[in-house]
Design a protein around this nucleic acid. Sequence first.
DNA 1: ATAGGGTTAG
Length: 354
Amino acid sequence: MASTALPLNPTHLSSPGTQISDSPSPPSLSLLSRCATLSQLKQIQANTIKTHLQNHAPTLSKLASFCSLSLPEHIEYAQQLFDQIPEPNTVLFNTLIRSYSRSHTPIQAINLFVKMLTNNIQPDNYTFPSILKACAMASALEEGRALHCHCIKLELDSNIFVQPTLIRMYADCGAIESAQKVFNATMKGRSVVLYNSMITAYVQRSRPNEALALFREMQAHNTPPNDVTVLSVLSACSLLGAVDLGKWVHEFVKKNGLDMFVKVNTALIDMYAKCGSIEDAKMVFEKMPFRDTQAWSAMIVAFAIHGQGEDALTLFRKMETERIKPDDITFLGVLYACSHTGLIDEGRRYSLLR
DNA sequence: ATAGGGTTAG
């Protein structure tokens, strides 16, 4: 890990000329914006301490917020900074809760929410999307239901940002009927995100027909589907093995310019492969102007599940020559290809790569 | 100052 020295703003360095000011100001935004590593953040912190600002709450708050947003892998340091702030406000709680909701320790978000309540800090419309996502990740249904009650009390259950996360929370916790209740309670002017959350919920619980019914309903209600919608709808087609429907969605994708999204094309490859049409999968792959790791993986897996082990391995070698970095799913596809084609030696060789 | 939905595998 290279720790480059940060070019510090001279006004932040202590010198005989700069004495403690009466109203110390937190580190400037331009200084923080050039901060890319934790050690640089600590340099800034050290320099503010040098100018006797160590107990300056706005400074700690700014550092904690920056650390949590821009150095999410150092969430525990953000927490350390946060713990030194005497009276953290709602915004700072929200910022940290959001970081935890995207971390490997979502439970910590729930702990912070509890702390928020015991400190009499009112959660708001920014708090719930993050905390509900954390519950979804942790499969914390009890806590999720309790949070839903808080939403209702604070009249935030009608918030357009809160609703999709309530649905996602219930769906990820396996309570699809509660997700449906939330969805059905929302009536007028449903957003595309709200539809997407329910369609995805159905797909994830292997209920493709209900997902497709909602897909039709949103169009009937003049809510145009977007790239995220078709990702889930294509999953539904795969679950049904419905290639004709998949082809219809493919046409829809082209007509609405959604084929500019790499992920949509990747989902099309997957759909065609799972519906038995490897030729169509190949055609989509070849037409893609840009292919990321996921697109290559999807095509390798597509060949593998069709028993075309040699094609999968050829594609893998081509991926290597194009210097696209393989991921775990790429290797899964490669090994799958070997196992389906009796390529024991190749399989052994590739399994030593990582 | 801070907020929502996501394909590839299993």
